[in-house]
């Protein structure tokens, strides 16, 4: 079943027009330059924004259907959403943040231990590091056993070490979760490392593979140009990425 979406929305500089599909237990990475409309896509899936036209279904349940005027409120969609940063409740401890919408306490404890932040359970979010905050945010999203996990550049504000740790954790976790995971990133190597399928997006549309080639050449694309530093990766990661590329034949 999984997650299926067909979305159209007029944005400031272009029209977003994409179709995507993500089966259960798989991770779909939406990659593209800043301002390509990536975040808007998952906000539309979450119901945080309304499309001009489109359909979103998950596990056979219709969440959005503009033609039939169906628009299930965000709170009823049962999603986990990891924002880029700063969305933990500042008045609550790490434990209470994760337990905020959790179904049971055992799950909260398991997640905090799995993500190695159990010793910080009584700390407030402003007293822990950026990496720890993002791990807490992922735990918070997972604690209510969501039907879909949506992640909006969750590692982009982290240092290289934390980014790698979290990527490794997510890679092993996605199989266990058994739900569709949609991961938005501007980092093509992160996408290649984590994803089962990749959807390159530019100017609101699913673009041909040349974007991946550009980005793999070490150039992060901004709205119009190719520029920016090449991200650092360890040798084994490079090998894994190369393997993936060969497998997917994106570099032909």
């Amino acid at each position: 079943m999984g997650l299926e979406a067909r979305l159209k929305k007029r944005l400031k500089h272009f029209e977003l027009d994409v179709t995507l599909s993500c089966p259960e237990g798989k991770l779909l990475a939406i990659v593209g330059p800043s301002g390509a409309g990536k975040t808007t896509i998952i906000r539309l899936i979450a119901g945080l924004e309304k499309p001009d036209a489109g359909i979103v279904t998950c596990g056979g349940e219709v969440w959005t259907d503009t033609a039939s005027r169906i628009d299930l409120p965000t709170r009823k969609r049962g999603i986990g959403y990891v924002f880029q940063e700063f969305t933990l409740f500042p008045n609550l401890s790490v434990y209470k943040n994760v337990a905020f919408a959790a179904r049971d306490r055992k799950r909260v404890e398991d997640l905090l231990k799995m993500f190695d932040i159990w010793p910080l359970k009584d700390s407030r979010p402003h007293l822990i590091s950026g990496g720890e905050r993002q791990r807490c945010a992922i735990c918070q999203a997972l604690a209510r056993d969501p039907g879909v996990l949506l992640m909006d550049e969750p590692f982009s504000a982290l240092d290289a070490l934390n980014r790698r740790r979290l990527r490794d954790m997510m890679k092993s976790l996605k199989r266990e979760l058994g739900i569709p995971v949609v991961h938005v990133t501007h980092d093509i190597r992160e996408a290649l490392f984590l994803a089962d399928d990749i959807m390159p997006v530019a100017q609101g549309r699913v673009e041909s593979k040349w974007i991946l080639q550009f980005m793999l050449a070490g150039k992060d694309l901004d709205r119009n140009h190719c520029q920016g530093p090449r991200p650092e990766y360890a040798d084994d990661e490079e090998q894994e990425i190369e393997l993936y590329i060969k497998k997917k034949e994106y570099m032909r």
Partner: peptide
């Protein structure tokens, strides 16, 4: 931060 409100919505409130 409006994202706190959005996060609460996402969490089912």
């Amino acid at each position: 931060d409006p994202r706190l409100v959005e996060n609460a919505q996402v969490l089912g409130l």
